[in-house]
Amino acid sequence: MDSKSNAALRTAEPLAEAGTTSGLKRQDSEQPTSPTRNAAQTSEAPRRLQTGWLKTMGPRYLVRIAALIVAVLLWELASTRGFNFYINFDNIPAPSVVGSALITELTGQEFYLHILHSLERVAIAYLLAVIIGVLLGVAMGRSRWAEDIILPYIELLRPIPAVAWIPLAILMLPTEQSSIIFITFLGALFPVILNTVHGVEQTNGVLVRAARSLGASRTAILWHVVLPGAMPSIVAGLAIGMGVAWFSLLAGEIISGQYGIGYYTWNSYTLIQYPQIIIGMLTIGGLGTLCTLLVRKGCNPLLKWQAKGGRS
């Protein structure tokens, strides 16, 4: 539900923009004697947009849900009939089978333990990645020296997939837990750094000059101008980083680990528990999406200045 409303906001943006520009035109022939009337107009606009949003987006959501239902039905058919034409559904459990297996899992304790372990690893790795990534990103965006020193490492290491780090992670780090966290951290780190650098480098020069002429120090400019200006880009990096963290975590958990949803998925394969494989996969997808969404929602207060109009 939440992921859908997120997608919908994106599509609704042109609408919002049209609403504010027409509002601006009205205000341009401004009469300083009636500022309250203008205020009333601006507060009216969002309400109008919201009902419009339901009207235009409601049917689209019905289509989206219908599309998912069709896919599940086709899958059920293919599995029960043993569809085998290049793609083989013979060994794939039907949605109904997966569903009943899921109910069994949900009533036990083991399944939640797997999820908790994965969540803990992602939380630690992600937190580290955000702190280090934003710090390095700001340093690189502000200082040519820092960028020249750090950038070569990033260019070299970024394309290496998480799975390729597994042997080194096991060799270098003391515990299995720390290896998995390290791999997850690396996955989340690069998008956070690169988006932070991008955001910081786009700092608006006029705003910096305005701040300086108002008596702001370098630190104040960083805090009041550079970071808020970079925030949209940083938040995008945080969301992407969360997604990458999840699939890096899985790589780590498949090879080593005793708990975790990745371990659960891989272990089900070796134990020939096919429904559990699909449960594992869908859980990963669901948790990844949920966490990304939480990051976006959590960062919304930092970007509330963007929501009210299209222009910057």
Binding site: T20, L24, P35, A39, Q306, K308
Partner: peptide, 12 residues
């Protein structure tokens, strides 16, 4: 009256 408005909601 506009003290709590963000700049991008105001006219030029």
């Amino acid at each position: 009256a506009f003290e709590n408005a963000y700049p991008n909601t105001l006219s030029g």
